[in-house]
Nucleic acid binder design. Structure first.
Lengths: 227, 227
DNA sequence: CTATGATTCAAACGAACGTATGAATCATAG
DNA sequence: CTATGATTCATACGTTCGTTTGAATCATAG
């Protein structure tokens, strides 16, 4: 039997698709752009991946498999060291969001390009990719929710889930780097302070996330005494 | 001379476009879907708006003009009442983000549909719409940045800009309501706790944002003494 | 009523889309 | 070497895209 000898074409397609989906979105990127940038024949995508839908799923799986395993590994390690004691919220936040952001420095795992694609896609999921991402993340998210519940026993669980949601939003937007309102881009900021400098973005974002996670609990309007 | 008699068609197109762009994104929505849902002829969009690009700009302008005027009005009012004293950060955050979120209850200003569209678009701006949004927001954002600088004199300005950025991300994601990882949607949450219940989302988000804005300042790794 | 200009309409335009086809080319097993 | 099956290639398929056209219809001014 004759087996596959060359996954160079596959990798070139995945790299080009990753970059173009990041820059122009899923619907905004055509197969001809992808194969053109990858330097392969138009038919190669359908031959190797079947369809455009399975292609973008492969683009994500290639990176997310590692990320989610790493997130579980880091959380396991933290819980092992804590020996039953609840973790600090900042440890959990760093294990989830920090692990993701540090991918930006690892070019072999997609670097900033994949991170931006991920941030974009979390905010604009096509119907079919929403289900795919939710499935990919299910195990990890459940583990981290439980860890946060234990770390913050005084905070209602529903509140923690919402704040996890908000943290995810702040992070997605930060790494997507679109900066629609030119808040940061238009600002007199040193070049070394730009989004690309992860070692400055990461501490800033972490401070913000932990501040939000540990904020005072909200007062709901229907909590008034006369009701 | 004969003048325009009927802007019913225009409004029907804008309403349909607003809803469809929200649901499927800009590239993912076709002119035929829009005119089909609006119950008008296919050529009506180009006749009334010129192109798909100018159409989505009109969709935004119709709502954003009011929102941004209102944001300036509220800030003016707050500063008038404060009579020179710096405002509380929570007042500024509520004036900017609260004013936006309260649009969800005003169906005549687009309600939740427009809010979701806005949240989505802030995170996935096509190149041409990024510039448009930045221009629409310029005046407002500058005023609010200044107000935050005054309200938080001890926080470095660059830090405030970044945190504004993070707050915008958390809010965009929250109102876009995509919930890609099914964090909130998959959770055992009372129906009355869902995203649609603004009176519960708003206090929750405000607490989170203010917690993040007032968080401890970050420690940068290169702040070590031996450097 | 008639004339005028705004609006609607059915139909078509060329371009770009994702996908499929079948022959040509390639690397390796036997 | 030859045979085999994986891969590449040029080309074309059928759809759908945003936009345009020119005639038909409409409401109003004169």
């Amino acid at each position: 039997m004759v087996e596959a000898r060359n996954n160079d074409t596959r990798e070139r397609i995945l790299d080009a698709a990753e970059r173009l989906f990041m820059a122009h979105g899923y619907e905004g990127t055509s197969m001809r752009q992808i194969t053109g940038e990858a330097g392969v024949n138009l038919a190669a995508v359908n031959y190797h991946f079947g369809s455009k839908e399975t292609l973008i799923q492969e683009v994500f799986r290639r990176r997310l498999d590692w990320l989610n395993e790493e997130r579980l590994r880091v959380l396991d390690e933290l819980e092992r060291e804590a020996a039953g004691q609840p973790l600090k919220p900042s440890q959990i936040v760093d294990a989830f969001f920090g692990t993701m952001l540090r991918m930006a420095e690892d070019e072999s795992r997609g670097g900033m390009t994949f991170l931006r694609l991920l941030g974009r896609t979390l905010a604009e999921p096509s119907e079919f990719i929403r289900g795919f991402l939710a499935h990919e993340y299910k195990t990890v998210v459940d583990r981290y929710k439980e860890a946060l519940f234990k770390a913050l026993p005084d905070v209602p669980k529903a509140e923690i889930v919402w704040r996890f949601h908000f943290m995810l939003g702040a992070t997605s937007y930060a790494i997507a780097g679109t900066d629609a309102l030119r808040l940061v881009t238009d600002w007199q900021i040193e070049p070394e302070d730009s989004v690309d400098r992860l070692d400055r973005l990461l501490p800033r974002l972490m401070s913000f996330l932990i501040g939000g996670l540990r904020a005072q609990l909200p007062q709901f309007p229907d909590a008034a005494v006369d009701r």
